[in-house]
Structures are given as C-alpha cells and as structure tokens.
C-alpha cells in the first residue's frame, strides 16, 4: 500500500436530486476503506475544511465534503457563499440529511469502499453530524463542539436551527463528542444533558471536554486553536474510526 492519494472537486447528487459540488479525497490503493463525510463549519466549504478532508485520506479513509451552500451560491468563493447562506436562513435540516445521504452514496460507488460510513462535523457541522447520525444508518459519528443540539438559539434569529436532542433515541451508531470546557455553545451543561439523553437510550458515546479550550479548538487558522486539545482530539478520532470503520 502506497501513501498516494487523489483529491479533487466532484459533482454528486444531493437532497431532492439536486446536483451539488463536493470535495473528494481518496487513497489510490490499499485495503477496503471506511468512508467519512466531512461536514464543514458555518464559514463554509473553505480551504481549512478541504485540508481536513485530505487528512482523512492521508490516514487511509475515503473522505468527502459536500458543499452545503452549493445551491445558494454556485461557483462563489466560500466566504461569499457562507454570507449568502446566512442571509437566506442557513441550511434546512432535511436538506442537510439529503446531502449527506448523497455523499455516502458517492462514497459507496468507489472501488475501495468497505461499506462502512461515518460523519464528522465542526461547529454548526457538529450539530449536523449528530443530525445525520440520527437520520441515516451510520457506523459512527463525531460531533466537534456542535451548538444547539441542546437548547434553542436566541429569539428572533432568522436561521432555521432548533434543538434536536429529542432525536438521540434514533442515533444509529457510536458517537464521539469533543468539546471545549470554555465554550458556551455548547456549554458543558448542554454537553452533560446530551450525554444523559444518550445514556437514557443506552446509546454508545464517548465524550471528552478539554480544559483551556473553547469553541473551534481544532481550527489551525484561527486564534481559537488549542494544539494540546486538537492533538488529543485527533488521536481519539483515529482510534474511534479505527474501531468502527475498519474492514
């Protein structure tokens, strides 16, 4: 097995049969690989998220990141697309699930696929990773500091985001949660509430909250980056996917 990989923009069929853009990164050879759908953060389908997608391929996974803002802003730069999506009220939950399902179908069609799939998402994508794992048959999911799984956003805000903790009973696979102790969205209390809900339904989950870290501690291009938390988080992600996505 070599370490060669290919990374490129592809077109996939998303929610409602819409053709959307996605970034695919895949090892070129080796044994069957698990598939990871990377759900980008609210600032969009940007260079940092594409780098994360390539990181999964470098670790032997088939990885794809759908551009959740494809419809609002086809061909626009990621920051313009994120601004347009925000002005439009954000990504509806049903559309997110349809786009993730389409991304999984694309991964399934790849010759190296071993038929196992997971989602991982950051920031707003953390909530969406949980949502996908409660709506689709997945082998694992990772939630990195997703806000508003528990708790409602402030009144009067135009974004179509509401609490989804009631979906915990439908979680289809093990959930790894990585959070910052100094984050308020989600707060440690909200993380504890989600954990209690998962306990109630005997859903396998593994949550870690890092001291000295707030929101977005994985983001290497932002002041919120906390290397110790991020490095330990990555170690846990590789261990988790090694257990649940292996052939």
């Amino acid at each position: 097995m070599s370490d060669a990989m290919r990374a490129e923009t592809v077109r996939i069929t998303g929610h409602g049969g819409d053709e959307i853009e996605a970034y695919l990164a895949e090892p070129l050879d080796g044994p069957g690989s698990g598939g990871v759908v990377v759900i980008h953060h609210m600032p969009g389908y940007d260079a940092a998220t594409k780098e994360i997608t390539r990181k999964f391929a470098a670790h032997g996974y088939l990885a794809i990141c759908p551009n959740l803002y494809s419809r609002e802003a086809p061909g626009a730069s990621p920051d313009d697309a994120a601004a347009a999506a925000r002005a439009n009220g954000g990504v509806p939950d049903d559309r997110l699930v349809g786009d993730v399902a389409g991304a999984i179908e694309h991964l399934k069609s790849l010759p190296l696929s071993n038929g196992k799939f997971a989602t991982i998402g950051y920031c707003s994508g953390g909530r969406q990773s949980f949502l996908a794992a409660c709506s689709l048959p997945l082998d694992a999911a990772v939630d990195c500091y997703g806000a508003f799984i528990v708790g409602s956003p402030p009144e009067g805000m135009p974004l179509k985001v509401g609490p989804i903790v009631h979906l915990a009973k439908d979680l289809s696979g093990p959930l790894l949660g990585l959070f910052g102790a100094e984050d308020q969205h989600p707060s440690p209390e909200q993380v504890a509430e989600l954990a209690a809900e998962l306990d109630k339904y005997e859903k396998v989950h593994d949550f870690h909250t890092y001291e000295g870290a707030g929101h977005a501690f994985f983001a290497v291009d932002r002041p919120s980056y906390r290397p110790e938390a991020a490095n330990d988080g990555w170690r846990r992600i590789w261990d988790f996917f090694g257990r649940y996505l292996a052939s």
Binding site: A87, S124, A147, P153, M157, D183, A216
Partner: peptide, 9 residues
C-alpha cells in the same frame, strides 16, 4: 463559538 444570531434588513 458560532453565534448564529444574524440581523437582516
């Protein structure tokens, strides 16, 4: 954090 909160006009 992502505040999500947005005023549009």
């Amino acid at each position: 954090m992502c505040t999500y909160q947005t005023a549009t006009l």
